[in-house]
Amino acid sequence: MSALLDARGLRLAFGGVKAADGIDLSVMAGEFLAIIGPNGAGKTTFINMATGYLRPQAGTITYDGAEITGRPPREIVRRGIARSFQLPQLFSEHTVEQNIALAIASRAGIFSPLAPLLRPAWREEGAELLERFGLLPVARQRADALNEGTRKLADIAMAVALKPRLLLMDEPTSGVAASEKMAVVETLVRVLRQAGVTAVFVEHDMDVVERFADRVAVWSQGRIAALGPPAEVLADPAVQRDVIGIARHA
């Protein structure tokens, strides 16, 4: 397997806080990589750097053989990296359906003169996506009227609608009711595997990590403290003590 995303020596400090303190990480094509770690460890910061929202002060990020360090989000998305957000970023005055439709149109090119011709196909694609994410019942509701879990799903569906090769998800299951969590993740994983998407996801639920991640990276104070298969990493006493213990009670 080859690395789809390759981060080397990423550093970024906010004042005295080292949110990234020498991050080296290769994300392999096709894998599901979980990121775990306590609050403030720099997990979101990593995603922010990989998607062009934040520019690292040092280090390089390579995607699919090309350097993308500090490129703007728009360019990075077009190269095939999409993301979802820890706090859902929806268009609050639009319906769920419109949110998804806009994501599909964005991928296909809203400035394209062919847009009107493509709309029926987009509509079909949108309906299918809504169905897969179980969002059909709320399709006509305004995004700001949804509960946290549903907004989270809509947020992820929008990222999936972009048909990325690499999807970075920031806590996809937080806010989703515990009783629905596993079913939701299962569906999501099925959708992504089918499409051959490589996924990186920040996760606080160790059961989800154990079940769905091929590898897990443990973040701690801007560094990667451990990296490997979940069975190994999660069994490590140091990880148990410093990360899982804290994360579970955070």
Binding site: P73, R74, V77, L90, F91, E93
Partner: peptide
Amino acid sequence: EALGAIKTRETRLEFMGV
């Protein structure tokens, strides 16, 4: 529709490549 998106969450448009 993207006009309305500018009003509510412009940065998300950037993350959709627009």
